[in-house]
Nucleic acid binder design. Structure first.
Lengths: 188, 188
DNA sequence: TGTACATCAGTGAACGCGCGTTCACTGATGTAC
DNA sequence: TGTACATCAGTGAACGCGCGTTCACTGATGTAC
């Protein structure tokens, strides 16, 4: 049955939100279109009214999630870093950072899906560069510093999720957090 | 037809080598058992004479590749870091670091496959800690420093592969390389 | 050392099953008058 | 404002296809004598 235009808009948003969560949680390949549509409260047949293919959904979900993450950065940079390198973030893959959850899969995707993630990453680096203290130098130097900062954050989260020993994970987080916050204090 | 025991041993090695390459290149899910067996010069039906399931292969390939990588670390730590954060490594996913290629997929695997990778990572960190200069402090401090070092290396390589712009990738590599080598020089 | 035979690694066809995608149909929406 | 009808979002069954896994068979290996 036909639904209102407003409902169509909500459904589209729900599909993207469900896809963004499920992809991060289980990986692109392990998530089926039926899973996504069911999670969004619809049946799988309606999918092609919204997206042209699974690849299209992957691209749009990457862009959607990138935008959302970027918009979520506010306040002190040190607080953002500390929240990122936290046990709660390690446990919350479905709701956490796109780049740590799907970063090693992205280069394998073709065209649009990869590009959306690439653009998101560039935006992320630019934003973190802006938040860097003046002590880090001029705009170019701050951008370089942001690249290293975010590399360590993503790598640290990814490795903390990888080890299957809670103590080792906690130590990885703590070591990275301490090193990065010390660096930011120097720059600040 | 039956083959010699020596050939069986070689075949097993070939299957693991093919699997380790293909998994890193295309991801676990996108690689079929037929792909692996064909790459190893065999037909797919023979697979179950060597491994009990695809998951078993994934676990053993992870362990095999981890061991190989660990054994490949020698010489100056600074040289290893510079070679790791290099454009050639970005381009060579199939032959490169297991953790950067499959790190975000590993936590989704169950039991053995994840554990093999976790053990490999712990070995890697221990080895890098040993190679840290005395300036980094005692054994515990060196291990912490190795954790941050490897987090930045893995994150830096992963993000450099993710961006679909060669200049941006080169800059990410350069920024991380410069920051890490400066840090090592201080510790040295 | 040579021969006869049991073993078993490898082959390739076949099996279920699940997935992405398609499609005829339904019935609520929104427009034309 | 009400009514009649064209539109089209959503449904659920069906389709190919490819994958992991199984299995009867083959023929070289390696052992027993």
């Amino acid at each position: 049955m036909k639904v209102s235009r407003e409902q169509v808009s909500k459904n589209r948003e729900n599909i993207l939100a469900s896809a963004a969560r499920l992809f991060r949680d289980k990986g692109y390949d392990a998530v089926t279109l039926a899973d996504v549509m069911k999670d969004a409260g619809l049946t799988h047949g309606g999918f092609y009214g919204y997206f042209s293919s699974k690849g299209d959904l992957m691209a749009q979900a990457n862009a959607w999630q990138s935008d959302k993450q970027l918009a979520g950065i506010s306040g002190e940079l040190a607080d953002y870093v500390a929240g990122y390198l936290d046990a709660a973030h390690v446990a919350n893959r479905a709701g956490g950072c796109l780049f740590a959850a799907l970063g090693s899969d992205a280069p394998r995707q073709s065209g649009a899906a990869r590009h959306a993630m690439s653009q998101g990453l560039q935006g992320m680096i630019a934003r973190l560069g802006e938040l860097m203290g003046d002590g880090a130098g001029d705009a170019e130097a701050r951008r370089d510093a942001a690249m290293t900062l975010f590399s360590t954050m993503v790598g640290g989260l990814l490795l903390a999720r990888l080890v299957d020993d809670d103590d080792a994970a906690a130590r990885l987080l703590a070591a990275n957090r301490a090193a990065l916050l010390a660096g930011l204090a120097t720059f600040g």
